[in-house]
């Protein structure tokens, strides 16, 4: 796997700005003062982070519910049907994430619609179109909601085996 080689400034910016991007008129200048560099250096570092694909965007992370109504859902898909079912699910524009996971419930996706009835209508349609068992798991209570996480800059990146058994398995509902 290709790993990125980040400058000290890029690392500092990643550490600081996952949580605390300034709401000041010149936020990059505010960060620059804090890090004792120029505003242009900060802007250049962010451009570099984006070019390298390390940062997708700088912006607001919206809470669920602030923008319509969303729900995590899962399907238990026979492996022979996975591609076709994934395409059926993805064809709905309200589906914004869809992952294959290493589990009998193997297709996990998020449906976001303007309100709860619209969301449920999409989920009903997916259940009907696929004819498969569908889990609906809306969020009940969030803790530590997408706050970013601490990046350990000292540890080397390691390649990942693609298929290993699911290591934690005590019971299955």
């Amino acid at each position: 796997m290709a790993t990125v080689d980040l400058s000290p400034l890029e690392k500092d910016l990643l550490d600081i700005t996952q949580r605390d991007f300034p709401l000041s008129p010149r936020p990059y200048a505010t960060l620059a003062r804090r890090l004792n560099v120029t505003e242009e250096a900060v802007l250049g570092a962010f451009r570099s982070l984006q070019t390298q694909g390390v940062v997708g965007r700088i912006g607001a992370v919206w809470a669920q519910g602030a923008v319509g109504s969303s729900c995590l859902a899962a399907l238990k898909v026979p492996s022979a049907r996975l591609e076709a079912v994934a395409a059926t699910v993805n064809a709905h524009p309200e589906v914004n994430h869809n992952y294959e996971r290493d589990h009998p419930w193997n297709l996990w996706f998020v449906v976001a619609a303007r309100d709860e009835p619209a969301r449920e209508a999409v989920l009903d349609a997916i259940a009907a179109e696929t004819g498969l068992p569908l889990l609906r798991l809306p969020m009940e209570q969030g803790h530590h909601l997408d706050l970013g996480f601490a990046i350990d800059w000292s540890a080397p990146a390691a390649p990942v085996p693609v298929t290993v058994p699911i290591p934690v398995k005590e019971k299955r509902p």
Partner: peptide, 17 residues
């Protein structure tokens, strides 16, 4: 309604695969 304003990192590109 906004959880945070900040850089949204790509964990994968940082080696968190």
């Amino acid at each position: 309604r906004i959880r945070r304003i900040g850089a949204v990192p790509n964990h994968y590109r940082l080696g968190y695969t």
